[in-house]
Amino acid sequence: MTKRAILIVLDSAGIGEMEDSSLYGDQGSNTIVNTARAVGGLELPCLQSLGLGNLDEIPGVKPVRQALGAYGKMQEKSPGKDSTTGHWEMMGQVLKYPFPTYPYAFPPDLIEEFEKRIQRKTLGNVVASGTEIIERLGPEHLKTACPIVYTSADSVFQVAAHEEVIPLAELYAICQTAREMLAGENAVGRVIARPFIGHPGAFQRTPNRHDFSLVPERSILDAIVEAGQQVIAIGKIYDLFASRGVSESRPSKSNRQGIELIIEAIKEESSGLIFANLLDFDQVFGHRNDIEGYARALKEFDAELVNIMSVLKPGDLLFISADHGCDPTTPSTDHSREMVPVLVYGSDCRPGVDLGIRESFADLGQSIAEHLGVEACGLAGKSFYPLIRR
């Protein structure tokens, strides 16, 4: 019997502040619980059956005596609260130092060198919300064709441009130039292309975002591929790992498309890991403090989860988790330093197993490796597979 792992990351669906959340200004953050409370309760029957309600007091999501699978929370060992850090740690890479951030914008000499290399002046160089900055600087961008550069509380160098002013291919080339520049002490986690369309007063970001990440060191993805198995990356996984350890990439532009790609991949004959990121929770709702939208996205995923579970094959293990928080109920529009849920389901998983609070996201990757029979020596994490294996 072929064994596979399917890992679905609900981007930003955190479940409670970490002990050190005060260092990040995230006291009180709890993305799932606070969202549920703000909308008067969430009905998530499928996630409830897997044990989500056993992890915290989530209005509308009840604890169950015998969950269909295993459930627990994971703490993040790495410093930081961004997608690159979270995903890398899941796959066995715990960072010793956080990626650099720029609370007062980027150094002038760095921007000057960037402008010289791309042969364009830039606008912005500020800390800002992505939707706010295109509304504010979009009109000037249309007149000058200068790309908009900005950052956030995360380790990101973001470049926004109107698709009719700077074509996508050129925007991506500009971001690739930034990626090549940003090394050493300025080695940000991600350079992000942020294309938009529309006119003043009605600008809208498009789904053609592209992330340019640092290349990670060896991870569990490499170990899976080295063992002759596949890593099928869905959504922005390929970008987050800078293609390393990925056999095949299937990009998605929405949660809905991502879920369709997950179901298609499960139906295929393959081995190894199907690794998916559903980005709407974070990009569309969390960063915009859209509480109703975040709640709706959770309910829509829960409804589709029934279909995902129905196509699992013998030997498949489904893992559902997150990479950080992005609590839409707080004043901040940035990520939040939170624990994340981990839910496991499949024919090889014992029901009703409480995994407790894991010390690292890396425990998830080690568990996947053990399920697949892959050696992951030298990488972080302690497998919980012996607890759930039938």
Rank of each mutant, 00 (worst) to 15 (best):
S83D: 02
N208P: 07
I232L: 10
T151S: 14
P386R: 15
L171Q: 05
Y172M: 11
E140F: 09
V159P: 01
S332F: 04
S252R: 06
A153D: 08
D11H: 11
E76S: 10
P167L: 15
G235W: 04
K236A: 09
Y71W: 04
I8W: 06
P63W: 06
I133R: 11
R337T: 12
L110R: 14
T330Y: 08
V9F: 11
G14I: 02
D334W: 01
D282G: 07
A223V: 03
R250D: 04
P328W: 04
S367N: 01
F157W: 03
S310C: 02
V127L: 11
T144W: 15
R256D: 01
D363S: 10
Q204R: 15
C175V: 15
L50N: 12
L23D: 11
C46R: 14
S347Y: 05
D20L: 07
F285H: 14
E43K: 14
D280S: 12
F106C: 01
F384N: 07
G184K: 14
A187T: 13
T101V: 15
P386G: 12
Y238L: 02
G51F: 06
S83Y: 02
H335F: 08
I234D: 03
F319C: 10
H335I: 07
R389I: 03
A153Y: 08
I220K: 00
T206K: 14
G130T: 11
P331Q: 09
I32K: 02
H210Q: 11
V165Q: 11
A36I: 07
V374T: 11
R117W: 10
L343W: 10
P167G: 13
F285T: 02
I308P: 03
D323I: 12
F157A: 10
E163W: 12
V284S: 09
P331D: 04
Q27M: 11
S336V: 05
V340Q: 01
D109S: 13
L137I: 00
G235I: 10
G130M: 12
K267A: 01
D26H: 09
Y345G: 05
E217P: 02
Q283A: 13
P314S: 15
H199W: 13
N307A: 08
I320E: 00
A13C: 15
Y385G: 00
N186S: 05
L23P: 03
G286C: 05
L42I: 14
V225T: 12
F196Q: 10
R209P: 06
A169D: 14
H371P: 02
E112R: 15
G28C: 05
L221N: 07
I232R: 08
G16A: 01
L379K: 03
G201D: 08
V284R: 12
A303R: 14
L305Q: 04
P147C: 04
S254H: 05
N277R: 02
G41C: 06
H324F: 05
E135S: 15
V33S: 00
P63V: 15
L171S: 07
L110P: 00
F99A: 13
G25C: 06
A161D: 13
I368N: 03
R256I: 11
G184L: 14
G184Y: 13
E164D: 06
M18W: 07
I263E: 09
A161Y: 04
L68I: 03
G92F: 05
V246Y: 04
D348C: 13
A376H: 08
T85Y: 00
